[in-house]
Design a protein around this nucleic acid. Structure first.
Length: 254
DNA sequence: ATGGCATAATTGTTATGA
């Protein structure tokens, strides 16, 4: 079973590229972030033509998350309690596993209102997750966490974003998610490797490999036992008009 | 210290991203 998380940075600006990638890679489940699409405009018919069902919650211009799958999707839940206005959380069951697609707020700069919102949002996520019954259930929560968990996950932790994405409170929130019984599959399978999933469009950052690993699959133990590989598709980031995030694919053994 | 690039609202400029 292949599960991909991908911040597409507008499903409309990149529809052909995203559909082409899905057609060529045939992941079983695709968790999207930053669709930047209202529910009315989400390209559900195009995905249907490729054999995928899709559930989504979005808004105009910003945010927006989706779950696409080749098998039946059930048990859909939309919105993080207390933060329903920004469309950053969707959950559904596919093939006996509960999936959650999250788009964690960016945080803008240390001390800003948006930074406070990011920490509040993460605290609400930590408070909400136990209602899903983890760690003793098959659950995969993937998405754009906007946090580089450790220094190895950032090209230069001292220079990044004026301190956001690497600040101790953000990392503490990420580790609070792990404390609920979730494991960062990429880091568990690759203890020392430095690989990034996002690169700034500016200043030739991709060519210089100045990036962050912020697109992450978090797994409960019984799913982690099945995890064989996590791959970051850098080639997708080289394409003309690519998203600034690469798709990250988790492979589970049957 | 700042800008750089991209998207989406709009048509000249602003908000946002990480």
């Amino acid at each position: 079973m292949k599960i991909t998380t991908w911040n597409v940075n507008s499903i409309h600006a990149r529809k052909d590229m995203v559909l082409d990638w899905i057609e060529r890679n045939r992941a079983d489940v695709i968790l999207m972030q930053e669709t930047k699409s209202t529910d009315q405009e989400f390209p559900v018919d195009d995905l249907g033509d490729l054999g995928y069902d899709a559930v989504f919650t979005g808004e105009r211009s910003y945010n927006g998350v989706a779950i696409c799958a080749r098998d039946e999707i059930t048990g859909v839940m939309k919105g993080l309690p207390g933060s329903e206005d920004q469309k950053r959380f969707i959950s559904a069951v596919v093939g006996g596993i509960r999936f959650i697609s999250v788009y964690v707020p960016n945080g803008q700069s240390l001390g800003s209102d948006k930074y406070a919102y990011k920490l509040d949002w993460l605290a609400r996520l930590v408070a909400y997750l136990p209602s899903f019954g983890l760690p003793g259930v098959p659950l995969v929560m993937s998405g754009d966490y906007n946090i580089a968990p450790f220094d190895v996950d950032a090209w230069d932790p001292k220079e990044v974003s004026g301190g956001t994405h690497v600040s101790p409170p953000e990392r503490a929130a990420f580790h609070a998610l792990e404390a609920l019984g979730l494991t960062d599959a990429y880091r568990a399978l690759n203890p020392d490797t430095q690989e990034f999933s996002w690169w700034d469009y500016r200043a030739g950052s991709f060519q210089k490999n100045m990036g962050l690993r912020i697109d992450i699959h978090l797994l409960t133990p019984e799913v982690m036992k099945r995890a064989s590989r996590v791959t970051i598709d850098r080639v997708a980031r080289t394409k003309e008009k690519a998203s600034d995030h690469a798709p990250v694919t988790l492979e589970l053994q049957a």
